[in-house]
Each structure stands twice: as C-alpha cells, then as structure tokens.
Amino acid sequence: MSNTVAIDLPAYAKVVYRYGRPVVLIVALLMSIPGEVHLAEVAGWGHVSLFGLWTINVAWGMPVCVSVYAACSAVIADVSKRHGLPNRRSAMCGAYAALALALTAQDVSHWIKADYMGTSMFLVGAVSSIPPLVAFHMLHMAAAPESTETVVEVEDPADDFEAGDDVAKRPGRKGKPGRPGLTEEEVKAAIANLKAAGEEVTPENLGQILNRSARTARRYMAELKRAEKKVQAEREAATGTLQLSI
C-alpha cells in the first residue's frame, strides 16, 4: 500500500491550511522589503538609467536577493530532501544561510535607522556581496533534474516486515523477514468485528485486531475509503449511462 493518509479537517481548519500559509508568507515578505531596500541604499545602490529611457532603483532588488531567496531555498531544500536529489545538502545549507542572512539584514537595517550603529567599509562590502553569492547558489541548486514527481508513492517498510516476525522473506529485501500485506476482505472483516463489538473504528482499535501499528491501520482505512469512492463513482457513471440509453 502507498504511504498516504486521508485526513478530514473541519471547514475552518481547511481554510487556514489552504490560505493561511500563503497570506502569512506574502505579508512577511512585504514587511521585510523596507529594511532590505534601506540596507541596499546604505551600501550604495540607487537609481540607474537604462539606455537613457528608464530610471529604476536597483535597491528594490535586495528583497528578492534576501527574503525571496530564503523562501526559495527553504522550498528547494524540502523538495530535495523528500526526493533524495543530489543537491539536497547544498540546498539545506543554503536554506539556513538564507534565513540567517534575512534576519541579519533586518536587524542591521533597523539598527542603522535607530542610530544604534552606522555604516562601515565592512558592512558595505558584505551587503555588496549578497547578489553574486545568491546568484551563484541558485545556479548551483538548479543542477537538479528537469522534472520531479509531484506525487510520490512510497512503500512503507511497516507493511512489509516488522521486528520479531519469522515468516518467509519477501523478494527484493535480502536478509529481512517479511510480513504479507492484508487483503481488503481481511480489513473489512476486522472493521465488522469492531462494529459488532460496539467498538469505535479507530486506527488504534483496528491496529490491535489486525496486529499492526496504528499508522499502518490508518493507511488501510484510507485505502478502503478511496476504494469505496471509486466504486461509488463507477456506479454513478454506469447509472447515468443507463439512463441515457433508455
């Protein structure tokens, strides 16, 4: 069975889970912009003329090099770790470095505004090195494969073997004892026994009857639920086809 779990959340929790994170991220990035732009201006970035037609303030690129870079590094590090990509260590180091850079940039900018410190040759040099370092690391992390699976099914070892089992070994797992997976009928029979006994059908109770962990029982329940939805959809499609033919 695949390592997927179906979770039913309350309506308010679904709204927070779906929309809360992007809202917080956007607000945090917006609040970081003034300090990072100010720090860039302190380091000497300002208005630049492009071909004599447009004038832009390149200091506004600093939030992209700091806060957006930190967000990108965190996402790339998570994806690299989940999928075992070759650049996962570099991505993890970059994520931590980007977070430290974002925090430091905000602190230094506000210290200067509050007259706790002034600019210096070291500060100007450090801030000036941010864009090329960010560009270098992003190009390095871009060495990942062109495409990665957005949905990955992982075979859970808990479904294949557990400590103490003395049964036939499964192919492909040399030296590891194997425990055969349960059939859909066995899981349904266990659920029926729980209901007959007046017990609540929970992963913990089902796991005790099946002699499996609660985590494994939860996956069995999710698989049954998906199978039931599939059968129901097929029945509805067949009913609609019959009505059309009539």
Rank of each mutant, 00 (worst) to 15 (best):
G172H: 12
E146H: 11
S32Q: 07
V64N: 11
Y19P: 02
V127H: 01
E149I: 02
G198C: 03
V37T: 14
R218Q: 04
S73N: 11
G178Y: 03
V37N: 04
S128W: 04
Y220I: 06
A13Y: 02
Y69F: 09
G46S: 09
G240Q: 14
D156E: 08
D159S: 04
A237M: 04
V58E: 12
V15C: 13
H38A: 12
H140K: 10
L133E: 07
H110P: 02
D159H: 05
V124L: 12
A74M: 11
D156S: 04
M1N: 03
G240S: 15
F136V: 13
L25D: 14
A114D: 10
G52T: 02
L30A: 13
S109V: 11
A102D: 09
K14A: 14
T148Y: 09
G35Y: 03
E155W: 02
A168R: 11
R18A: 15
K81R: 11
T55K: 06
P86C: 12
I209G: 00
R219T: 03
N205G: 00
G118T: 02
R18N: 13
L139M: 15
G240H: 13
V24F: 13
L53N: 03
V27M: 14
V231G: 02
A227L: 12
A77E: 01
D107Y: 08
C72G: 11
C93N: 07
Y96H: 10
L224C: 05
G125D: 14
A40E: 00
K225F: 09
M221N: 03
